[in-house]
Structure formats: C-alpha cells, structure tokens
Design a protein around this nucleic acid. Structure first.
Lengths: 116, 116
DNA sequence: CCATAGTACCTTGACACGCATAGTAGTGTG
DNA sequence: CACACTACTATGCGTGTCAAGGTACTATGG
C-alpha cells in the first residue's frame, strides 16, 4: 500500500527529521539520506539538495555542528552532531507535530460538527 | 496545551481543507475562514490571502466552481461548489494524508530500529 | 452624524523551502 | 575502461503562504 509521499506534505518537517536522526548519534549526509529511505520504507526520499541546504540552515542556527571525519580511505565525510539547543528544538518540533496532526485530522477528515 | 499551529506544518494541506469543507455544502470565503478557525479550536488561522489564492488555483484546476449569491442586503458573496473532480481529488488527498501521517510519525518520533 | 467594528472580497510583492540540474572526486565491479 | 556507488557542493527556479494594502456595505454606540 502506498506510493511515494508528495513533497508538500513533508515541507517544514525536514529539519525535525534530521534532528531526530542525529539525536541518536552523529551522522553524515549520505547516511542520513539512506536512513530516511529506510525509515520511510522507501516511500520518502529526502533529496540531496534539500538535505544539504537543511544542514547549512541548521548549522547557522546552531542546532547542529559539523566536523570532518578522518577516513583513511573512501570519500571524505562531513559529520554532524546535534547541540543542546538542537535537542530542545527537536523536542519542541515533535510536540508541534503531535499537536498539528490532531488539528489536521479534524480539518481533513472531520465533519463540520465539532462533536462527532 | 496548544498554541497556534506553525504555518509550515499546514503547508500543502490548504486545498484539502477547503475541499473537505465544500464537500459538506457550498460556502464562501469568509465563512470558510471562520469554519477553519472553529474546527481547529482557534489554533489555526487560514489567512485570507492564502484562502483566495487557493480558490483561484482550485477553480483553474476545475476542482471547484463559483457563482455569485443573490444577497438582497449585506456584502455580495461569491459561493463555491465542489465538482466531481474535486471530490475525487479530496479523496486522494485524504488518503495521502493518512499515509504521510504514518510515515512522518516514524521519521519524527520513531527510533532508528524499524522494529520497536 | 460620525467613528468603529464586523462582514466580504481582491491584489501585489516578497520570502523560504524544496528541488532539478550540474559538477567534483574517490572507490569498487565486470 | 565503462559504470555504478559513495559523498559533498552550487545555482537558479517554482510554488505556497503571507504581510500589507485596498474597496465597499452594514450595524452599533456615543
């Protein structure tokens, strides 16, 4: 069941998704890209351009910090670590999502009567 | 619990919300504006500019049609009616939402292990 | 009689996010 | 030696939303 997820339905959640993954350990671009594919069951592809522009945004806001890995072979990797500020931000976004989900359910699936 | 909903979390759902309301009977801009406020418990305000630009989009795509009401007094009202095509579109969007909600839950609240 | 608030619609310009596209560069496979 | 995969980066566009502003009619209270 289910094709791909429309991009507009994800809009605004990118940062939260990235922060959630980094909460569970440092990671780098390509790995996060793969993780999102896996977590979503191949139903959502976080585009690379979107991912890397999100990194820039998050780093500027000090929600994550980056450092180059010391790979002895293979392509160099830029790792990202979530900051304390980033963790707070994630937690707030998570709450916002739970809340928005409820309201959207009412607006999209609910009838006009508030009591039903 | 519950402040306002950030606009980015609603982005992309405006059309679906409007179609859902129109599914339950013809309506006009200002009434829909009020209905959304009520349904969301004052937690989401669909801005007028957003609403009217959505009307233009929906009408162009033939998901809704408009006609002027015959108010004998008060401001003139432009009513909108959902088309058959619009109903199909709503149903598809509703399914997409249910589906996206699941995936987002995993991506935002879930851990890295798929089985948990 | 006039100010204010509410109803009702519309336009313009700007912004931010996500993406298509393109490029660099190293590694592994047939 | 071509191709696929890993890994990062830059540029420029489309789209949805919104702030701000405007028009016009009705009702209320001082």
């Amino acid at each position: 069941m289910g094709g791909k997820i429309s991009t507009d339905l994800i809009r605004g959640h990118t940062d939260t998704i990235i922060l959630n993954i980094l909460r569970q350990g440092d990671s780098y671009g390509y790995e996060i890209y793969k993780t999102v594919l896996t977590l979503s069951g191949q139903r959502y592809e976080l585009k690379e351009a979107t991912l890397y522009s999100a990194f820039r945004r998050l780093e500027q806001d000090e929600l994550i910090v980056s450092y180059w890995g010391d790979e002895t072979q293979g392509s160099r990797r830029k790792y990202y670590r979530i900051t304390a500020k980033g963790k707070d931000h994630y937690e707030q976004n998570r709450k916002d999502w739970v809340f928005a989900r409820e309201v959207l359910d009412k607006l999209i699936q609910g009838g006009l009567n508030s009591d039903e």
